[in-house]
Design a binder for these strands. Structure first.
Lengths: 221, 221
DNA sequence: CGGTCACGAGACGCCCCGTCTTGTCATCCT
DNA sequence: AGGATGACAAGACGGGGCGTCTCGTGACCG
């Protein structure tokens, strides 16, 4: 729960910050929380992010506006939590405790496989619409962007770091390479094509990225 | 002038689309147009994109709101035209008729030089604030995103395509490589780090990207 | 010299914002 | 048991930007 307010508050009643009421999260209604998530995701899918409003979410969820403002600072924060909750639920029901990039010994094949799965995900509207909306909001809304990166993006990237380190141990990757930079050679191009529609995304494309990145653009020899 | 309305309209008065008044662009006030651009860029820089409003731009420019709505569909479109106009003006006063990536014969050095210049640009607040705002809007607003890509991004990328083709002619780049994909190996990582704050950007970083991309992540031999 | 039309100014209804008020209900403490 | 607490649904409220509209003005046109 990313936006749950801090449970403690200074005892001093007269401080510069107006001393918010600080809601009691133990008394929180789980039913309302889920209804808000469902309504937010449904509305973003149906009318798009810009036309999704806090009032609309509240009405759709059968919830008072105050209940939303009590727990989240903005519609973007609501959607971020809803999206992360969705991700956890779908991962759980798919049986994944925690993802990991396969390690068959063939680095190129493993990377291509994961990127193909990513392509599928990026093209699934249930994922695409809220993810794009959150990415867009994160570009302009600093704290939300940081949470988006830290909560959704960076954990994925760390899986690549792990797999690339393993490859270095086995001599499949140059030992002087920084894995955190290396992964960007195939992940970032896909991300940019998806986000900004700068080109089509397909299995052939991501396969090509892996080959180019691993074996280099310059002639070998 | 990206959003100048079409000069012609069907003679049929009763059609499904309500037949907009179609302003006469020959009678347009150049003074107002410039004042709107200046006001839009100033406001975005001062109060940020979300707090920039059409009313605010109009008031700052000493212009009626209708004059903005007559020529642009949204504040995002205004800012896009203002930003493109700014780019043209600064390029002109810097004496550049048209940019081009240097071709000294050393591909790695040429790419590193251009990327270093890009780093400088990305870190210049005068460029950064409106560019990020437009990129964010373009993610969610399809037609604006397409115009952003076609008008600002793709022309830059084509310079890389040109330089990479030249490298292929000289044998500095594998002949089977698609230059449009190859350029993404070093441009997209930089773009993503800048847009989403997924990591620091520096000369050392972009130099590394070029080396990784040209010579590959896998051991040579 | 009369007609056309972009212009500055601003009024208008609309919708959403974020806050505040009211009454209900579940939980916890005494 | 009974009283206090506090989240809850519902919705009223002022504020402000939206996009459209109506004015009166002035520049250019035939």
């Amino acid at each position: 729960m990313a936006h749950t307010p801090r449970p403690a508050a200074k005892p001093t009643p007269a401080k510069p910050t107006p001393a918010k009421p600080t809601p009691d999260s133990t008394r929180r209604s789980e039913k309302s929380r889920r209804a808000i998530f469902d309504a937010a995701l449904a509305l973003v899918g149906e009318v798009g992010y810009p036309k999704t409003t806090v009032e609309g979410i509240a009405a759709r969820a059968g919830v008072g506006k105050q209940t939303i403002y009590r727990w989240w600072p903005s519609k973007a924060a609501v959607l971020l939590d809803a999206f992360m909750d969705l991700g956890e639920r779908t991962a759980r029901e798919a049986g994944h405790e925690s993802y990991d990039i396969p390690d068959t010994g063939d680095l190129a094949a493993d990377l291509k496989q994961v990127l193909r799965a990513t392509v599928d995900e990026l093209l699934d509207p249930r994922f695409e619409i809220p993810a794009r909306a959150l990415a867009a909001e994160g570009l302009v809304n600093e704290p939300l962007g940081a949470e988006f990166v830290a909560g959704l993006l960076e954990p994925q990237l760390q899986l690549y770091v792990k797999r690339l380190r393993s490859a270095q141990d086995k001599g499949d990757l140059r030992p002087d390479i920084d894995p955190r930079i290396a992964l960007e050679l195939f992940v970032s191009p896909l991300a940019q094509r998806w986000l900004q529609h700068t080109g089509p995304i397909s299995y052939a494309y991501t396969d090509t990225l892996v080959d180019y990145a691993l074996y280099g653009l310059a002639p070998r020899g």
